[in-house]
Structure formats: C-alpha cells, structure tokens
C-alpha cells in the first residue's frame, strides 16, 4: 500500500516538475533537475516503503496499546487501555483494493492518536473488537 501510494504521489511530482521546467523555466539545468527528481522519486518509491515496513510495528496487551512508525525519524506511542476513548477503522480506496485497513486509537489528549496502518482487513476488525472490549472493561471516563 505504501509503495503504491508513494508511487502515485511521486509520479505526480515528477510530472509536475517536468512540466514546470520544460514549459517556462527552460535553461541548462532543466534536464539535470528532471533527472534528479526522477531519481529521488524512484528511491522514494522503492526504498522508503520497505524501510517504513521494517519500522512499523504494533502491539496490544491487556493494559496498553503500542505503535511504532516512521522511517527517517521514528515515533513510538504508548497509550494505556484505560485511556482509550475511541477506536476507528478506516479503509481508503487503495487499501480496499489490497484488502488492508487502518486502525486509529484515540485518547483524550489533543496530542494525536495512535495509528496502525496496513493491517489485513480481518486482523484489523479483530483488533478493533478486541480493543473495544478491553477498553470497555476499564472504569472511568478515560481522561
């Protein structure tokens, strides 16, 4: 999914730069610029998603949820189960095509939710159920 979506966005960037340089910014540097963009795009499409995949991991125990994401800079988020407020299940068009889904766990904090990308659909659904049940068991209003 990451490969695909970054391929698409990179393609757009390449086309954009190509058009811009050839149409109204002509000069000696036109072709080097395009070449550089293409090289970056290829790297971005082939390497970064792999890297992301290697970094990306998640885990849910009885008392807490844990996610790790990113590539160049990584971010790990931990939320105790007692503070989980909502559990979202989302599927974009691309994800649906590939049978994947994203689970988002929100806490009361404004600092942002925990996101688990690219789970297989049934794993994601199972996780949603599981989290909802566990979060339900804990008393309190999760603030």
């Amino acid at each position: 999914m990451w490969s695909l979506s970054s391929a698409i966005s990179c393609l757009l960037v390449v086309v954009g730069v190509g058009l811009a340089t050839t149409l109204w910014l002509e000069g000696w540097w036109t072709w080097p610029a395009i070449a550089l963009t293409v090289a970056l795009a290829v790297a971005n499409t082939l390497l970064v998603p792999q890297w992301r995949y290697l970094v990306h991991r998640w885990e849910a125990t009885d008392t807490a949820v844990y996610t790790q994401r990113g590539w160049w800079s990584r971010e790990r988020r931990i939320a105790p189960m007692s503070r989980v407020q909502t559990v979202d299940f989302t599927q974009g068009p691309l994800a649906r095509l590939l049978g994947l889904a994203t689970v988002t766990v929100t806490t009361a904090s404004a600092a942002g939710p925990l996101q688990i990308d690219g789970l297989e659909t049934d794993v994601a659904l199972g996780l949603v159920d599981d989290l909802t049940r566990k979060a339900d068991l804990v008393e309190g209003d999760a603030t």
Partner: peptide, 13 residues
C-alpha cells in the same frame, strides 16, 4: 499521564 510518545530522528538515534 494518558500515554507516551517517543520520537527519534535519525540524528537523535
């Protein structure tokens, strides 16, 4: 405290 976030850039790592 309702959660932790640990962030590290490549340089930090």
């Amino acid at each position: 405290v309702i959660g932790w976030t640990v962030r590290e850039s490549w340089f930090q790592r």
